[in-house]
Design a protein around this nucleic acid. Structure first.
Lengths: 361, 361
DNA sequence: TAGCAAGGTACAAACGATTGCGCAAGGGCA
DNA sequence: TGCCCTTGCGCAATCGTTTGTACCTTGCTA
């Protein structure tokens, strides 16, 4: 611990701590001369305020907590980056917790963060239990939900995309590309992301006059292994779908690997569309058609809502920020005719389509 | 802020705050009956300790700070995950700062973390200035350096791999695979990672009796764009290398994209080996031959060193933990004959090699 | 019965900053 | 000269815990 405190430099200058404090903060009246003496003394004794003491006195720790299920998922690490940027700008520090997809760890993290008196909370919860939300309501600090929005969260603050619409959009895109036999690997229906993407998918098919085939719609747990396993199962079916909408990136990776292992071609044998399969390397093949959430902005906006609330914005109802995702077409869902067209154009050699286009949906 | 404090429940029970505190902490003697009454009262009033007050009193915030250049880089997000795990286990909370590769932000983050009285610091610094290290030495808290180890850090705590040896190892691997015309895209020589991988590369070539060609060894800034630009430059050379060792993942992605844009084949025309090009999706092609650092373990060990120091381990000299990276062979550096062999074996159709093997180096 | 040990609890002082209030000095005005 | 207002600064309380010390009970032993 740094030993030099306000009292030390006050003593050195024959002043009181109050004067020194005021000289540094600029609150209250301090003579021009004394202020300079104080600043000088502070400089040469490398004094650092003790933010813990300040927080106690001010009853405001200037910390914002964020808990995510998996910090190594690029979606969440981008969210964190955005939140961090916003925090820095407003003088807050981010306390990051990884719940590891575990409700137990999530609760533990929450408890710790609350003990540390965070001023606000950004929560990508893994729980869907409506009761899980109740405690947050009783909290006297602002809580912003991202990604998974628990039930009964109407009056809570939320930053998200319209998952129902996004799933519907990409499903229709598949149909527009000529696929009618389309299935889905959905996420857990207990999480809003899972559920809404599922209902969006169904609705889109029906709107296109296609009745979804039950055996082509399976639900996983958003992890890679479940994508792989479910896709294997699908491939064993007597009749298999020609296209799949997959509810998140990890399950898509698993599914694609399964397809590849089965010696099948994407999109030749089966087309794939997913969520958040952003490719920061430019090297993933096939380039996955996907709905991409503006992850950094989600984190940024979430943090900003908290800051706004803390500086007196106390609207009763929750603010619901719905951001626009983008659709990157990819080449994992080109209808055969398209591929054939490209092949022909390139003189018999199959050519990948490397151009990535981001379009608002 | 949660309004209910020790005093409240003390009052309710007709006790003093000290007794309540002791009942909860288990320090000091408290009657069995009173203890139960206290626990009961705490439960029904959902009291939460104020960790800020406790930190002030105990002069220990139980927070560990970590600052990394880019949290969205999977290497660093894995480091953070490991550190987080260790922190959780030992009752610490992690405060994460993103320096965005900027010395200014790094310093700002450091200042903030120190003000918040973090008990220890994990630092992946972007600065190499020896003076940059000096302040850390004066710090009275444990500081562990990871990734980039600044000069003059001999007596500091460090968790890292042996970058010189690793670069040498993968370079020799390339030579063993039959490549003799090998170049390098190095990192900034101002950072230890950049410098050591560079010298390791040179040494390995010389050990193999190959004299490195200056025009094939360029230095970038560890970012994707620089990898792309430098590779372009190399490809324009009248004589170009047959293989490249690239000093980190991002530059490798850029370089590979440049090669691909030039219509060249990997490894047919040019082979690639890199650092930390782990592929969590299993979908990147070519599968990049690379040295992979045990990122989570680096974070974990770093945090554990701090915890050890804090609980009285005050060895004078710095502890230097050197972890073993793994080498994943990949198919971005198969000598032509190997590829041809595979092609022939698969009946004329080029086949990718999808098996990933991790071997200790 | 006196004395003593030990068990149970309360008092109050920290931890280091912020801030309302009060006091003194000085200047301006009547 | 007397009064008031402004300016500059110090006093002391406060934020919520923890903990050293002191105190008052018991109950037990000699």
């Amino acid at each position: 611990m740094n030993a030099v405190k306000l009292e030390d430099i006050a003593k050195k200058l024959g002043l009181s701590t109050s004067t020194v404090s005021r000289a540094l903060s600029g609150n209250g009246r301090v003579g021009e001369k004394t202020r300079h003496r104080v600043l000088e003394a502070v400089r040469e004794s490398d004094y650092t305020v003790n933010a813990v003491a300040r927080s106690l006195r001010l009853r405001d720790a200037k910390n914002i907590g964020i808990v995510v299920p998996d910090i190594t998922n690029s979606f969440f690490s981008s969210v964190i980056k955005g939140a961090q940027d916003a925090c820095r700008q407003h003088g807050y520090t981010l306390m990051v917790c990884n719940s590891d997809e575990s409700e137990e760890f999530e609760e533990e993290s929450l408890r710790t963060l609350l003990e540390k008196q965070v001023s606000g909370l950004i929560l990508a919860t893994v729980s869907a239990r409506p009761e899980g939300v109740v405690p947050y309501r009783r909290l006297s600090i602002p809580v912003v939900f991202i990604d998974n929005i628990p039930e009964g969260a109407e009056a809570l603050d939320v930053v998200s995309i319209d998952n129902h619409r996004a799933a519907s959009r990409i499903t229709k895109e598949m149909v527009a590309r000529g696929y009618r036999d389309v299935g889905m690997i959905a996420g857990p229906k207990s999480q809003s992301t899972g559920l809404l993407r599922y209902t969006g998918f169904l609705e889109a098919l029906r709107a296109e006059g296609i009745s979804p085939r039950e055996e082509w719609v399976l639900a996983g747990d958003f992890k890679m292994e479940s994508g792989r396993a479910l896709m294997r199962k699908l491939l064993k079916l007597p009749e298999r779908p020609r296209a799949m909408v997959i509810s998140n990136n990890y399950m898509a990776y698993g599914a694609i690997n399964a397809i590849r292992d089965a010696g099948l071609d994407i999109p030749g044998d089966i087309a794939i569309a997913s969520f958040d399969a952003m490719d920061s390397t430019g090297l993933i093949t096939p380039l996955i058609a996907s709905i991409n959430q503006p992850a950094e902005e989600i984190g940024l906006r979430a943090a900003e809502i908290i800051v706004a609330r803390l500086s007196g914005d106390s609207r009763e109802s929750g603010t619901e920020v719905i951001l626009e995702p983008t659709l990157s077409p990819g080449d994992s869902a080109c209808y055969n005719s398209v591929v054939e067209h490209v092949v022909r154009a390139s003189g018999g050699q199959p050519a990948a389509i490397y151009a990535v286009v981001f379009m608002p949906i």
